[in-house]
Simulated assay, not measured.
Amino acid sequence: MSGSGSIDRPRFLWVVTGATLAFLFAPLVVVAVFSFNSSASLTTLDGASLRWYRAFFDDADLLASLRLSVVIAVIASVASVALGTLVAVGIRRGSRRVGGATNGSVFLRVLTPETATGVALLLLFTQLGIPLSTTTVVVSHTVLCLAFVAVVVGSRLALLNPEVEDAAMDLGATRLHAFRLVALPVLWPSIVAAGLLSFVLSFDNFITSFFTSGVGVPPLPVRIYGMLKFGVTPVVNAIGVLMLLATVLAVGLSLLLTAQVRKLRGSRPEEVARG
């Protein structure tokens, strides 16, 4: 409190920020520490060891689920980037009335609870007679990530003056060539960043995977959920740390590309296209 009785706002905000960060990251620190525990205890540290990481890499079932999750994430990322970029271009370069309605639908999809989406996809596949499999998981993850790609790419495309593409067409370029030569050089950092975001969203997704995966090898998050039914083991901690590292790496690359996008915002689109 200051002399006038008001709250010391900067100090108070620092306390709230520190408490929030501690609440968010303390569980991750605990998981990381106990993933190196030499014993199976989840409450007592008995020395450092890589025992549980070796147990993970020696488990054929876990490795199969890991490979499946990576494959699903890669395919879903590529598909969602391709479709989401087309949606973003349609919203920003198409009819204003149709683009406005589509943009609202995209944001509605982003805000829709994932549980509702997962149940809806499950009912859709069931009603169409499509058996649940890896294909249904890939389709579902693509639907999940597509809206995020459209938002990320569309926000960058909105900053590009369409008159630059019109000038290219006045010089003899077709609309497709104008987009490829003028817009894509400016959009590629956003497209790659959206792809990395899609990979992260797909790789560690549980809810949609749980509702749309069938028999056979499950994705890694679903496999972990099945393991937890029989009790928590330090192997789960090791898996969590590895997934966290993969996520941090992807997010770090995405942040670097976002910084590149910010630099491009200060450049004229025609200069970027020539570069």
Rank of each mutant, 00 (worst) to 15 (best):
V138C: 01
S140T: 00
H141K: 00
T142A: 01
V143T: 01
V143R: 00
V143S: 00
C145P: 01
L146F: 04
A147T: 02
F148S: 06
A150P: 00
A150C: 00
V151F: 01
V152H: 05
V152E: 07
V153I: 06
L157H: 07
L157Y: 08
A158G: 04
L159S: 14
P162G: 04
E165V: 00
D166E: 15
D166R: 13
A167Y: 03
A167K: 02
A168R: 09
M169S: 05
M169K: 08
D170W: 05
D170E: 11
D170R: 04
D170M: 13
L171H: 07
G172A: 10
G172K: 06
G172D: 10
A173D: 13
A173F: 08
A173E: 12
L176H: 13
A178N: 12
A178D: 10
F179K: 11
F179T: 13
R180M: 14
L181I: 09
A183Y: 11
L184H: 10
L184E: 12
P185C: 14
L187R: 14
L187K: 14
L187S: 14
W188Q: 10
P189I: 06
S190A: 15
S190M: 08
V192R: 03
V192N: 04
V192F: 05
A193G: 10
L196V: 03
L196F: 11
L196T: 02
L197S: 05
L197R: 02
L197A: 06
S198T: 06
S198L: 05
L201I: 11
L201V: 11
L201P: 12
L201N: 12
F203Y: 11
F203L: 14
F206I: 14
F206C: 14
T208H: 06
T208Y: 09
T208S: 11
F210N: 15
F210M: 15
T212A: 06
T212S: 12
G214P: 14
G214A: 11
G214V: 12
V215R: 15
V215A: 15
V215Y: 14
G216H: 15
P218C: 05
P219M: 02
L220P: 02
L220A: 02
P221R: 09
P221L: 08
V222G: 02
R223H: 09
I224R: 04
Y225D: 13
G226K: 03
G226A: 09
G226C: 04
G226H: 04
K229D: 07
F230S: 10
G231E: 11
V232R: 09
T233S: 12
P234D: 03
P234T: 03
P234E: 03
V235E: 12
V236L: 13
V236W: 10
N237W: 03
A238R: 04
A238E: 05
I239F: 09
I239C: 07
V241M: 03
L242Y: 02
L242Q: 03
M243F: 03
A246G: 14
V248M: 11
A250N: 04
A250M: 08
A250I: 02
G252F: 07
G252N: 04
L253E: 02
S254M: 13
S254P: 06
S254Q: 15
S254I: 03
L256C: 05
L256M: 10
L257A: 05
A259H: 09
A259E: 13
Q260W: 08
Q260V: 07
Q260G: 06
